[in-house]
Amino acid sequence: MKPYNNKAWWLVLPVFVLVAFSAIIPMMTVVNYSVQDIFDPSTRYFVGTEWYREILTDPRLLDSLMRQFVYSFCVLAIEVPLGIIVALSMPRRGLGVPFSLILLSLPLLVPWNVVGTIWQIIGREDIGLYGWTLNSLGLDYNYASNPRDAWATVLVMDVWHWTSLVALLCYSGLRSIPDVYYQAARIDRASSWAVFRYIQLPKLKNVLLIAVMLRFMDSFMIYTEPFVLTGGGPGTATTFLSQTLTQMALGQFDLGRAAAFSLIYFLIILLVTWVFYTAMTHNDNKG
């Protein structure tokens, strides 16, 4: 007797065709481009792995990569704990629930380029709330000329835009914890910290892994918000990978080099996503 029926795989065929046209065929084209120097569709020369070697030893790109890792790390280090705190402080019942859910959803509905524009205004030291307040407190704040201020503003902007997502995911995780756990904790006279450490946090593990994965991928591919806010400056202080890639592909029309770069970029995201996915499913299998 067969252990399972393989006929269901035919149901996957429509999705496979869609993915082939939207991802697999474009990806194959990028691989083809990455080993050639392309001037126009009919004028192209095979260069082998030359673009890869050049990119992997280019200090400008390595700086951009390091900047991107630091940025994603900062985003996760701020947004995940903050999202948990916000979710824990949200009301569990009553009119406050829909109110807080709507309030938290609002930043998520704002398009990326609009977020950049909003923060361009908020960050201004003459009319912007953020810039004016910091300068009034005696801090010499100017995100357009000071790399440290530019970084802080880009980070604060991301926190403003995306912490809600982590908070909403955590809130849904918290709501799914049955009341009996809290009742048992009350009988044991457990402290709030013990309830969080031994009931809420373990139950939030899967939701948190999804939140971390989504925020990592998104922050690692960030483009529009810093591009609108700082244009990658001052200098190259906030030039992240996707902006470097866009400059290479569209600014310099260096398609072969940009293709090799995007494949390396893809491999990094693939590895990290696989690690998170494996951690999640490994956890499920054990649980």
């Binding site: 065929i25 194959m28 084209t29 691989v31 083809n32 080993v35 050639q36 569709p41 192209r44």
Partner: peptide, 15 residues
């Protein structure tokens, strides 16, 4: 398929 800019090594790789 010309727009995909195929080369022999990449064709062998995908095969």
């Amino acid at each position: 398929m010309g727009w995909m800019a195929w080369t022999l090594p990449t064709a062998l790789f995908f095969s």
